[in-house]
Design a protein around this nucleic acid. Structure first.
Lengths: 157, 157
DNA sequence: CTTATTTGATTTGTATTACCAAGTAAATGT
DNA sequence: ACATTTACTTGGTAATACAAATCAAATAAG
């Protein structure tokens, strides 16, 4: 689809554009909320993601970079700042002495938990237009979308 | 809901957490795709948003800042760089000589159209897990969510 | 087993993004 | 007419992000 061999956008594509548009706009609203919640704790969106990802994981720098879709060199500074603030810790891997593993400190874990709750709070009004059984429907549709994704593009909070 | 007067997260809240989680993860995947498409054209996510917003609008700096959820001062540099690249143009408002209106140049319009098509392309595989009638359902649920939003948090591509 | 290559992370340098506070000019309010 | 608000820019600072180069450890080749 798309790939207008005929050089124009057909009806099916036009219809799918509406879905794409809705998805994109919803995403911006959502990340806007994420961003705002993070700002209250002096956390950037990326730092929020780090907290979210490391909530139940312990990853090497490279693995974390892949999750975030960022360059390895970007991670160095990102993790260093988070480390300086006591949110995460670094530890050398035992299997591979080149690798550095990153994980949440106790403080980071607390922050992550608090942030998660606040995000749920802040998204509640956003979900105001979706009520009752529609929430279940939306959820299962999104879960369907997510589970169909190739492995660790499943990155996220 | 939420607003645990009792200081704990109840069942309803826990259930809604799953929806929140799915929404957040979906958003990260979507903005990741947006970001990747933009990168191919040397456009940041924010610049992509600017193109998307100005596709069918002509806004003052402040209005654009509100749409993006950014500070006015951030917009100055953002628009200046986009202007230097020939994507947008500035023009003094006639009604108010303090105001500056921003709009897409011919080149910017072309880029916006191309980017829109590419985004639809790139999101196609992401939507792979949602097929047939489920797409319509997802779309109408998202549209329902969007239309329930207070005015221009409806910002987005 | 010794060298060559690849891999994991950091360093350095640059550009962008973003905020705040302060400043200027035009428009409103009193 | 003067004070205030509004619209935007400027200046300063920090965070974010990438690319290229470097270094150490692990793996592959010979």
């Amino acid at each position: 689809m798309l790939h207008h061999m005929d050089g124009r956008r057909d009806e099916a594509t036009a219809a799918s554009d509406d879905l794409v548009d809705a998805l994109v706009q919803t995403s911006f609203i959502t990340t806007g909320v994420l961003s705002a919640v993070g700002a209250k704790h002096d956390l950037s969106l990326t730092q929020m993601r780090v907290l979210g990802i490391l909530r139940d994981r312990r990853l090497t720098m490279t693995a974390l970079a892949v999750y975030l879709g960022l360059d390895k060199s970007t991670l160095t500074g990102l993790v260093s700042r988070a480390e300086k603030r006591g949110l995460v810790e670094r530890a050398p891997s035992e299997r591979d002495r080149r690798s550095v593993e990153v994980f949440l400190s106790a403080e980071g874990l607390a922050q992550a938990a608090a942030a998660t709750a606040e995000v749920a709070d802040a998204l509640e009004p956003v979900l105001g237009g979706v009520t009752g059984p529609d929430r279940i429907r939306l959820q299962s549709l999104l879960v369907g979308l997510l589970t169909a994704q190739p492995s660790p593009s499943t990155a996220g909070s």
